[in-house]
Design a protein around this nucleic acid. Structure first.
Length: 413
RNA sequence: GUGGACGUAGCUCAACCGGUUAGAGCACUGGACUGUGACUCCAGUGGCUGGGGGUUCGAGUCCCCUCGUCCACCCCA
């Protein structure tokens, strides 16, 4: 074998790309119906943007980023997630001049992880961010939008889990309380949790190691330690979700891998993905804009993984393609006239591939079938003389002669 | 980054205990059938057995290294 794609980077072949396109189109349509607009941010940013926003001690920043020096010696990084670039652009272009900004984006992200099913080094995310709205309504609306989208594209069995991580007023106190609790039981924790107990004790709640699970069984719950404002916010989010008919289970142990989250966080999982079972996740990040040099701006956002969605939709998703027709001309006269006719039909929006390759009609029919044609349009000397064309429906095997001007009506869905 | 399973034709997989020229189905090309696909029949193309090294008279098969895929951990969308 010659040169191959690098590990964790995949080619998305036409068949799968079509499904991806469908996922994107449906997402964009739903997002725009909620008043979101698209933003396109660069794929490469200054390393500092990510280390400051995601958190110096997170796994992503510590060992998963594609970081390199450019020719001027600046440290640059391939974006490992989409929120930080969007927030950077939001601040840089002073989009905060308007009260609320709703943005969505789609594109590749990069993390140096060990590839697995549903986890690649280049992966695609579609995300949305509401900037400048701190209300519980914003959280619930965004979640409603996301669940509605999943419903629309035919994703089955999506489970929503929510939690609240508090704010700078209540989280430090909780962290201290949890830290003290863990310190007492340090000996039963796994090495990994022991190591990060100082920097990020919350992580221990998320650990699947049996010793850690047992040790943290009676750990203090973040939800019971929220300040009045955060508790009120969380309660209101739940009430609004209920009103929208969205079932959410509360998981006080769910911790995010990015440091910027505050208050509401969530994760949507689906079975059938193995251990990489999250299809979308996100939450509130009220401090990030300010931290990156903008005004105090409460925000809520999320991202979904396109590879994982595609994986699930391949099983049970539903979308119908525009029918393909294949045009076959018999003889040079028909070929010449055919080019003219095709131009007109395509302008009307018909999807028509042509087969001028010659060979027997049989072999060309065969090729049309292989190409997935719903209709085959045959133009021979006989049809040519009558201003007609033979339209064969490959699904029913029936065929009829149709006047040229009625072809568009005949094969339109 | 750790542990494990597996890499044979474009795809899915065979090949006994190490033994002749590595097979089959699907797919592809052509024909049976020169104005009709899918179904049937016939023929054909297609392989450095992931790559490299070793053991052996002999390696797809055993050993080592390497690359890759998958699973679990980890992490996360």
């Amino acid at each position: 074998m010659g040169i191959t794609a690098i590990r964790g980077f995949n080619d998305i072949l036409p068949e799968e790309a079509e499904l991806w396109r469908h996922i994107e189109e449906e997402s964009f349509m739903v997002f725009s119906s909620y008043g979101f607009s698209e933003i396109k941010a660069p794929i490469v940013e200054k390393t500092e943007l990510f280390s400051r926003s995601i958190g110096e001690t997170t796994d992503i920043v510590e060992k998963e980023m594609y970081t390199f020096l450019d020719r001027h010696g600046d440290s640059l990084t391939l974006r490992p997630e989409g929120t930080a670039p969007v927030v950077r652009a939001y601040i840089e272009h002073k989009l905060y001049e308007s009260p609320v900004t709703k943005l969505y984006y789609a594109g590749p992200m990069f993390r140096y992880e060990r590839p697995q099913k549903g986890r690649y080094r280049q992966f695609y995310q579609i995300g949305a961010e509401v900037l400048g709205d701190g209300s519980p309504q914003a959280d619930a609306e965004a979640l409603g939008m996301l669940m509605g989208l999943f419903d629309r594209i035919g994703l089955e069995g999506a489970m929503l889990q929510i939690n609240s991580l508090g704010c700078p007023d209540c989280r430090p106190a909780y962290k201290k309380k949890l830290y003290a609790f863990l310190l007492d039981r340090k000996e039963s924790l796994c090495d990994n949790c022991k190591r990060r107990i100082d920097a990020n004790p919350l992580r221990a709640l998320d650990c699947k190691n049996p010793g850690c699970v047992e040790a943290t069984k009676d750990a203090p719950s973040i939800i019971e330690s929220l300040c009045a404002d955060c508790a009120d916010h969380f309660r209101k989010v739940q009430a609004r979700l209920e009103r929208l008919g969205i079932k959410a289970s509360i998981n006080p142990r769910m911790v995010r891998g990015l440091d910027y989250y505050t208050k509401t966080t969530f994760e949507i999982t689906a079975s059938g993905l193995g251990s990489q079972n999250a299809v979308a996740a996100g939450g509130r990040y009220d401090g990030l804009v300010n931290e990156l040099g903008g005004p105090r701006t409460p925000c809520f956002g999320f991202a979904m993984g396109v590879e994982r969605l595609a994986l699930l939709l391949k099983e049970n998703g539903v979308f119908k393609k525009k029918p393909l027709s294949v045009f076959i001309a018999l003889g040079e006269n028909a070929e010449m006239k055919g080019m003219e006719l095709l131009k007109g039909w395509r302008q009307k929006g018909l999807k028509i591939a042509e087969d001028f390759s010659g060979g027997s009609l049989k072999s060309r029919m065969k090729r049309a079938d292989k190409a997935g044609a719903r209709y085959v349009l045959i133009l021979g000397e006989d049809e040519l003389g009558h201003g007609e064309i033979t339209v064969k429906d490959m699904a029913t095997a029936g065929q009829e002669r149709v006047k040229w001007e009625f072809v568009a009506d005949r094969i339109a869905p």
